[in-house]
Design a protein around this nucleic acid. Structure first.
Lengths: 242, 242
DNA sequence: CGAATGATTGACATGGGTCAAGAACCGTGG
DNA sequence: CCACGGTTCTTGACCCATGTCAATCATTCG
């Protein structure tokens, strides 16, 4: 419910993400220009809204830590989750064209983001032409990811949907994780079920089945998992195993 | 099976798509530069392969007419369709980052494409900086579309999946269609079923149900439909109606 | 015209949705 | 720290939608 707090500091240089964010494409001497243009370190509490579907879209958001979901609300009250975003991801790239938020975004946990207006980004791009290459690179990545995620959902069985989902989440978290088998699910079961097109009860049952079969381990909190038998999980994902 | 034939002509000026393709962002006097860099009017016969998953990716492809599907082949032989592309669409934008084809693409009908190498596009971009804006616009659109398509699949019931799919296809075809209610499905039932995560028989049954309920009309060939009761189709899509 | 491929329909089995109850977890206040 | 209520997750029982298998019909192409 709470909005963003005031920025704490304006320094991209000591950001852990700098190497795969805007500064990476700009020489160290000129980086001060970036911090002039990017609003850094906005905090959002769990459940806080980043933006609302239908509003004018003016910024992209880079997640420094934490996670967000994006969702579409239908007139009849139903919601469709269409994306989960985590550390290092950029939110709202799909709205740059139309300038209107095509979905709403809310924080899944206490999170921190940096935001850049489309307009200022264009200014920066004219100053630093290499930035255009970066934009294309990042967009291409985002498209690849989005097609990858499609794989979860176009599968027929609930088991292979969840298995695929877990593998993709794991791969994305591995960029910052130390333990390569650890999975942290910041979203609720309801959100996952919605995203995968399953009933929450089915999802829960599949979780227990994956646990009993020994391919994943559930820890104390239901948001903490680890992959125990990656090979088996992969076979579930591809639908060979049931 | 057959490959591309030789280019017929090299002229973007008289192309119906020019207004929403590269030339649109370049002054008329300089357009000759575009035709020097783009390979225009390659023809692909039905079932012909545009590129193969795993190969080095060097080009994007603009569909002049016709349609293509992209699909991922799993080691165990199964295929997953992850996209349908039609007139005006650009194929392979997701591979620009990694430089490797993440899927295979094949023609669903006799089609014509223009292709541009990533490299030459970068050259052109340096010459015409506005092109970078176009790239971002096009990528943003592609992302928006891909999220839109996700809606089809994350729905629970087969009926709302197909209804959503038909509405999206219709909207995309309306850009060039005269009759706004006409739908032409160049892909097989098998392809649609695969894409929507349904069995082909279920899909077929849903088609008949949509037909019997009067919301779509099937014409002589199974690829030709029209929307008869758009409102009802929309209710099916949103899951209000069953 | 006939074979091959693709689409539809029918009969049956089952995975997963629905409803309901119970368990685990979380935040709040004492 | 524990007690309490609300929320979220899990489990069970039941049944329907959809997958599977098989037969038929339609369409395409030689």
């Amino acid at each position: 419910m709470s909005g963003p707090n005031t920025p704490i500091r304006n320094d991209c240089d000591e950001c852990a993400l700098a190497s795969r964010c805007f500064p990476a494409f700009i020489s160290v001497e000129k980086r001060f220009r970036v911090t002039q243009i990017i609003t850094t370190n906005l905090t959002y509490d769990k459940t806080a809204l980043l933006y609302r579907q239908g509003e004018k879209a003016k910024h992209i958001y880079i997640i420094k830590f934490g996670s967000f979901k994006t969702y579409i609300s239908n007139p009849n009250g139903t919601e469709y989750i269409n994306g989960f975003y985590m550390t290092g991801d950029i939110i709202n790239m799909e709205s740059v064209d139309q300038g209107i938020h095509l979905n709403s975004a809310s924080a899944l946990e206490n999170s921190m983001v940096c935001k850049v207006s489309f307009l200022r980004l264009t200014i920066l791009k004219d100053e630093f032409p290499t930035l255009a290459n970066m934009a294309i690179k990042v967009y291409s990545q985002a498209l690849a990811l989005s097609q990858d995620l499609l794989k979860c959902i176009s599968k027929q069985s609930a088991t292979s949907r969840l298995a695929t989902f877990l593998l993709i989440i794991n791969r994305r978290q591995n960029i910052q994780n130390q333990d390569p088998d650890k999975i942290y699910l910041s979203m609720s079961r309801q959100d996952i079920a919605n995203y995968l097109g399953l009933a929450i009860e089915t999802l829960s049952r599949v979780f227990t089945r994956l646990n009993e079969s020994g391919c994943i381990i559930k820890h104390n909190r239901h948001s903490d998992l680890s992959i125990h038998d990656r090979d088996l999980l992969q076979r579930y994902a591809s639908g060979v195993e049931n």
